[in-house]
Amino acid sequence: MDTVLFIIFAIVAIVAGFNVVLQRHPISSALSLVGVMGSLAVLYLLLGAEFMAMAQMIVYGGAVMVLFIFVIMLLNAGAEKPSSKAWFAQIAGLPLLLAFIATLGFLIYSALPGLRAVEFGSWTMGTAEEIGKLLFTQYLLPFEVISVLILIAILGAVVLALKEID
């Protein structure tokens, strides 16, 4: 069952991920990304991270991506046009990517053999309570910092978006 769920949602995630990259239209990419996030949320649940799964959906799916879609709609962004200005990226990108995925694969499969098997429900510490406890004790300072960061981001966004152009 675990395997089935994983395979289904992994395939969904990968297909949607490819879709993000391959679709010509931003909104298709965006929605594919939502698909990725949704399937990742399920995978999080499988990994025992129920809070994170929900947070993923609320924050990513419900806020960040909506914002994206919103902006795409607002700008009425069309399909992108080809461009060849960044020739370096065009040329060096693919070999580097291949090298990168090869490295990652090598690392995962040769250097990390001692990994666990994931069994749904065998470890369920990822509850809101646990995360809250950790967040307000050990990670209090980062938490506060990140709060300030968000505040700044809000201000920044407001300032940027409200700016009178010319």
Binding site: F106, L107, S110, A111, L112, P113, G114
Partner: peptide, 14 residues
């Protein structure tokens, strides 16, 4: 070296 890295991570995990 990569295997060393792996071993290090493994040890860390343990």
């Amino acid at each position: 070296s990569f295997s060393c890295l792996g071993a290090r991570i493994r040890a860390l995990c343990a």
